[in-house]
């Protein structure tokens, strides 16, 4: 479904990613874990097209989309739920969702988008109750739900999630991850960036451990969770055994 091949990118003259490669099969949830500044979010932005490639490729369903600009990549099904959510705070929940479906125009696609909206409300019932409320007045958890819902309105083939648990209470986090599990069961491909490696690996199929802009280690989530180095460095050995 999605393939990143020897990707090099950075901000200004400073390189952040030094030739990263990864793969996500259709319906798979992969996760990028690693310390702060390892390049996880940068990689996600690069996949979304926010950050241009110096070299390397991003391939979606066999098509090279490396030079496709962000707004057109959305139309191809690569949709980012950005860090910090980036909602349109002065607009209502409904309008935010409508903007998510910006590219779904014309009779049939329009009707599909409306059906999608109902599905989003079914996944996150609280949003249905907040429909007319400005997004800026929602709680942090509700905002994250809206950010995910808005991205679903774009009809993603690959959903990119940047730190969806950031700053949220454990109860809300498990609510959101329960929805992500449902989306994966529904066949959606996802790339998850998470600070909380244990949480991420518990939900994902496959993980990439990043260190200073490259992939240091990869493997199935079960293997990584069992790996001693990963346990020690990223999961915090003091959490004990599971």
């Amino acid at each position: 479904m999605l393939e990143v091949d020897a990707f090099v990118a950075g901000y200004g003259r400073i390189p952040v990613l030094h030739g990263v490669s990864l793969k996500a099969g259709a319906g798979q949830m992969i996760t990028l874990v690693g310390a702060n500044g390892a390049g996880k979010s940068t990689l996600l932005k690069a996949i979304a097209g926010v950050l241009p490639a110096r070299s390397g490729r991003v391939i979606l369903e066999g098509e090279d989309v490396t030079s496709v600009p962000v707004h057109r990549r959305v139309g191809k099904g690569v949709v980012l739920v950005p860090e910090g959510r980036m909602l349109f705070g002065a607009m209502s929940v409904d309008e935010n969702l409508t903007l998510g479906a910006y590219l779904r125009t014309g009779g049939e696609a329009r009707r599909e988008a409306e059906a999608e909206r109902e599905r989003v409300f079914e996944l996150f019932p609280i949003l249905a109750r907040r429909r007319t409320q400005p997004a800026g007045t929602l709680s942090g958890g509700e905002q994250q739900m809206l950010a995910v819902g808005r991205a679903l309105m774009s009809d993603p083939k690959v959903l990119l999630l940047d730190e969806p648990s950031l700053g949220l209470a454990p109860k809300v986090i498990s609510e959101i991850f329960a929805v992500l599990d449902r989306l994966r069961e529904g066949g959606l491909t996802m790339v998850l960036v998470e600070q909380d490696a244990r949480l991420a690996l518990k939900h994902a199929d496959y993980g990439y451990v990043m260190r200073t802009g490259s992939v240091a280690l990869e493997g199935s989530s079960a293997d990584l969770l069992a790996n001693d180095d990963v346990r020690l460095i990223y999961l915090g050995a003091w959490h004990g055994r599971e």
Partner: peptide, 18 residues
């Protein structure tokens, strides 16, 4: 709606496909 989205957050607007 696209114009208002750009006013509020241009990067987010781009992520909507605008």
């Amino acid at each position: 709606r696209a114009m208002r989205a750009c006013m509020q957050n241009r990067e987010a607007a781009r992520l909507m496909g605008i």
